[in-house]
């Protein structure tokens, strides 16, 4: 399989390791990624929130670049995904409004979790998996933008999504049922109003702890950094690390969770290593 790849700005900065893990995963399962040449920021969320036209034209440039490659586009960032989809819809409906002669739009825009939850990827994972993450209790956290608005994202079960739970089960971990899976963490306000972000993050982490989660797992780079960082200054200290979904899968596939990767978390991410060691030991005992 060969896909275009739109990493987006977060994956060159605060979520650099997410980018690495997506690329690593794809190479492990034999999916070739072609980065869209000279892609630009999709503008999320400030552009569409304050300058609609800029917010449409920025992702459109990327779509037009991707159209030249003619491949489906893999998008790991929820915000980028939503903006690319919004731009695609408008380009399809009214290309002339945007001064584009015609837009064929044969390239599907695929969000990472849709891709990962597919049957083909499951099979690829099962063939290669070396360390099942058995016993790891995970709160799957979707946040907002890969789901809403469904008329843009095309997601049908946007109130009760399942892709992350499906993926987590592929690697043998246990998704806990909990309340705040699709609640907002206010990532777009985190710099300007850290007090609000702290409140929202506090609520959702609290809910995940009550549900028995050892950690959170997400596919959104903004949620990952916001939910970890806003726990730092919380009374009682941070509670739950937030893993990128591909970070977990790669650990399960390779049987190795590198210390270097673990150290990139703001919240102690040792629980994954502990689970892996435990599973490794119990397997050796049974052999």
């Amino acid at each position: 399989m060969k896909l275009s790849y739109y990493p987006g700005c977060s994956l060159q900065g605060t979520a650099l390791d997410y980018d690495k893990s997506v690329r690593e995963f794809c190479s492990l399962v034999g999916v070739e990624l072609v980065e869209i040449p000279d892609w630009n920021c999709c503008g999320a969320s400030s552009a569409h929130m304050t300058r609609h036209e800029v917010g449409m034209r920025l992702p459109m440039r990327n779509l037009l670049l991707a159209a030249e490659l003619g491949l489906d586009i893999l998008v790991p960032c929820a915000a980028c995904f939503q903006r690319l989809k919004a731009a695609e819809k408008s380009l399809r409906e009214a290309p002339e409004y945007w001064d584009v002669e015609r837009y064929q739009g044969n390239c599907r825009i695929i969000h990472i979790s849709t891709f990962l939850a597919s049957q083909a990827i499951n099979e690829a994972i099962q063939q290669r998996i070396s360390n099942l993450l058995k016993g790891m209790k995970l709160g799957c956290y979707y946040g907002c933008l890969s789901l809403r608005h469904p008329k843009i994202t095309g997601v049908s079960n946007f109130e009760q999504p399942e892709s992350l739970e499906t993926i987590v089960r592929y690697v043998g971990a246990e998704p806990v049922p909990w309340s705040h899976r699709t609640e907002c963490c206010s990532g777009s306000l985190t710099m300007a109003r850290p007090d609000i972000a702290r409140r929202l993050v506090g609520d959702l982490v609290e809910a995940a702890v009550r549900a028995g989660a050892d950690a959170l797992v997400t596919d959104c780079p903004m949620c990952q950094v916001n939910v970890e960082s806003r726990q730092m200054d919380m009374a009682g200290g941070p509670r739950l690390p937030v893993y990128f979904v591909t970070e977990l899968i790669n650990a399960a596939l390779t049987g190795d969770y590198p210390a270097k990767q673990k150290r990139l978390h703001l919240v102690d991410a040792g629980v994954l290593s502990a689970v892996m060691q435990e599973n490794h030991r119990s397997r050796e005992e049974t052999v």
Partner: peptide, 22 residues
């Protein structure tokens, strides 16, 4: 009414306008 939020948006957009990426 929330100048910090507006400041964030314009800082973010300024960065993209200049570099093309954040």
């Amino acid at each position: 009414a929330e100048p910090r939020v507006a400041a964030f948006h314009s800082s973010f957009l300024g960065s993209i306008e200049h570099w093309g990426r954040a």
